[in-house]
Structure formats: structure tokens, C-alpha cells
Design a protein around this nucleic acid. Sequence first.
DNA 1: CAGTGGTCTAGACCACACT
DNA 2: GTGTGGTCTAGACCACTGC
Lengths: 255, 255
Amino acid sequence: MAQSEPEKAAPAGPTPAFSPLYQQIKVLILKSLQAGEWKPGDMIPSEIDLAARFRVSQGTVRKAIDELADENLVIRRQGKGTFVATHAEQQVQYRFLRLMPDSGDLGSEGPAERQIIECRRLRASGDIARPLALRTGEAVLQLRRVLAFQGTPTIVEDVWLPGGPFKGLTAERLAGYGGPMYALFETEFGVHMVRAEEKIRAIAADAASARLLDVPQGEPLLSVERIAYTYNDVPMELRRGLYRTDTHHYRNVLS
Amino acid sequence: MAQSEPEKAAPAGPTPAFSPLYQQIKVLILKSLQAGEWKPGDMIPSEIDLAARFRVSQGTVRKAIDELADENLVIRRQGKGTFVATHAEQQVQYRFLRLMPDSGDLGSEGPAERQIIECRRLRASGDIARPLALRTGEAVLQLRRVLAFQGTPTIVEDVWLPGGPFKGLTAERLAGYGGPMYALFETEFGVHMVRAEEKIRAIAADAASARLLDVPQGEPLLSVERIAYTYNDVPMELRRGLYRTDTHHYRNVLS
DNA sequence: CAGTGGTCTAGACCACACT
DNA sequence: GTGTGGTCTAGACCACTGC
């Protein structure tokens, strides 16, 4: 890793595609994360160690890690070290859930009561396969569950997962697990969700959802369709949630 | 600005409240922005100039500006300079609008057709005054408008503004203006919206909204309640929008 | 105390935009 | 070419954590 030249001296490449050194370092660290060299929750080597390993200055490593921290892939803790981000921390119970109670500012209205409604294996239709980057007919797991807060059923969601990476996932394993679903994915299947996109709509409750959420059929509900990605923008989950918004709201900050 | 010591040597303050130099510089730049020393769209002094002005190294100024750029208060342009952010750029037409057409990925479905329904001056009720940090009964402007995309009315929103800063705003001035509302606020009233928070719910269309959006009464609509802030977290706008989500969706990215 | 991340500096050089 | 932001380095020192 001599200078800031491109890693490969492409023979007469029309676009040299200049990439600063710290970006190249970032990619290397990313590869180690992806390869599982350090597991979620682990401490990664110190900046000095990484600088020696990559033969660059500490400042360059620093900038690479800064970006990874900005993207919530790692967490810096002064005096302790830098750690691989995880969904298994009691800090924010659900990192990707933006639903907040109208009254209490915090998500600390007690833990959600979870109930698995179903969990089955099936072949993906086109609508399911496409967002998961699978081919139509490939095996997927589908599961449905209800989340209740303080006794009020508030969320019903359908989740689709690619059959390969999640082979062996059953309703029993989910039901017998205390933490967030994404934490189980990390520890049991080595799948670390890193980023997600949501499309939000208002829809009328159908009969099945109305029953599960204990609201009249036709009640307006928030429809939240999420695609969650692992490293390298590989989609690993499709989720369609219906949220009651009479006691909660979806919170978003813009800047 | 000698070293990284706190600016004021508080006499036996229990919490020294250590603040790094670059944070202090950031505050100073922020004050200049707030005071209008540089207007939206203007170029701010170069890093070297600012470093000389504050008697610190360029790297320290750099880190301060980096944070301001992260918060979208300024925009860095390599080779040109650093500029005060503005809502008046044709880049992203509506910086705070997260509604996207279901089909076309870009917001380039042509400009929105705007129609001011009403604009009046009134005294704030408690529900309006509180989020705007006003006292009940203080003067506010209320306006209602409809946004249509490709001929389909899609958004109806009510906007409440504090009467003081927006003295002189009329339906005519709004109607005769081409750009985003926040751009007009910048140029005509010197109010620069910097940040916003939204609470999103699903509701059923009432009679008035249904008529304006050309949907059946009771149709599920997205209710988007926004509080927009200027510098220093001063709330300057309360907005309640109702979005049709049959052809559009609210997009959010999580990380 | 040693080890970690966090700050600050000074200087060199690179990439980009304008003139 | 000049001026801007962007990268990279090397070294010093500070703040925080835990032994």
C-alpha cells in the first residue's frame, strides 16, 4: 500500500477511478467484517495495529473507521476500542423500528410482547423474489408475527427470508428467543443487517389484519415495507408491517 | 483561542464541560451563519482564511466545517469553496419531502402544480402555539395548499407560521413564486429551515380533504406532521400534510 | 499504569474549477 | 497558474477506561 495510486494499474483505463487511500483501507476493513474476521460485538484491532497492518498512517485508518462508524457498521468507544456493531445491545431495543408511543418519549414502555402466528417454507413468487434478488420459485421462509405494547396489539408483520442463509429457522427457535429478531439472525445465522429502506403507505385494514390487531376492518393502518441489507448491499429480508397509529406514530428526522 | 481549554475558566464549576477546539470553532461559524454574515447560497471564507481568523490550524477549521456539512448547513464543493446551504437549488426540489412516485425513481415527474387554498392570520390555539414555542393567542399565519403531480392532487397541507417573523406573507406572494416554499422563506423573510421532525400516521380522509384530493371520504391517507427548525433548534413552522399513497409512497432509509 | 480513541498541529502534495 | 477543498503523514498531547 504505497501511495494514493489506484490499487490496480489498469492498462490505459479510460476512467482512472481515483480512490483515496482511506477508501481503499475502508474496503479492506469491510472485507474483514464481511468475512467474519471480527464478529458483532467484538473489538476490532486498534487504529495503531491496523495502521501497521496496512502500512499507512494512523490518521488514514482513522478516517476509514470514521466512515464505518458514520454508517453504523462499527461503534467507537473512547478509552476502550472500536467494536463491530450489533443488534444485540439493550441500548436501542429495535434499531430499525421507528414507531414511537405518542405519550412516552422513550421506547421504554416495557418490552414488546411477541407472538409468532406462523412460519412456513415456500417457493418465492415473483413479487417476493425480486426484492430479495432471488429467482422466482426459489425457497423462502415466510413468517408472520404480532407485536403488542402494554397489552395492545400494535404491529402485525410478514417477513420473507431467503431459504439458503436461513436454513433451519423455525417458529420454535424464534419463540424461545428473548432479543430482537436481527440479533438472533446474527448469532444463529451469521447474517448481520446493516441498512434498510422503507416504503410507507396508508392502507385500510383487511379482515385478517383487523382481527390480529383488534381494530375494525377498514381501519387506516400504516403499511411499512422494508428491505434490509447485509454488507455489500445484499438484500436479506423483505418485511411488510402494518402499524396501528392511534396510540403510536412513525417518527422521522429530516436534515 | 490558545489551547483546548474551556473558553471560560468557570470558578470551581463542578462539570468543566470540556469542549474540543473544533467544536468551539463550529459554534463561532454557526453564530456567523445565524447572524446572516453569509447568506444562503453564499460562499463562506476559505478554510485558510477561517484558520487565520480564529488563530487555529486549518485542520481544526476543517473538522468544524466537516460537521456543519454533515448536518447539511453548508455544502463543500471541491475546487470552488464552501457554501451556505439553501432550499433554492434545483438539485433536490423539495429537500424535506420524502414522497416518491411508485414508478419513476426520481422526483422528476415534472414540477408539482401548486394551489393556495387559503391564507389567513389568526390567534394560535394551544395545540398550535405549543409546538411553535409561542404563547396561546399569539398571532400566527395559517395557510392551506394542494400539490398535484401530473394532474393528480396528491398532497393537501396546512401550514402554521409564527406571525412575527413572517409578517407580510400573503397568498399572492406565495402564488406568484416559482420555487419551494422554504426558498421563499429564505429570500423574503431570512428564515432558513435547517432541520425537521415528522410524526407519521394513517388516518381516514375527512370530507374536506377528500374533496381536495379527489378521493372518497374515509380513504386511508398518510398524515405527516412536521415541525421545522431554524438555527439553534428554534421551531419556525408547523405543518400537517395529508398524502395520497396510491401512486406515491413515503421513502425512508435506515442505518 | 498502559492502552485506547480523540484532538491539534504543520507541512507536503493531489484533485478540481476557474480564468 | 491560482485558489479551493481533499488526502496523507508524523508527531505531540489529551481524555477516558480498566488493570
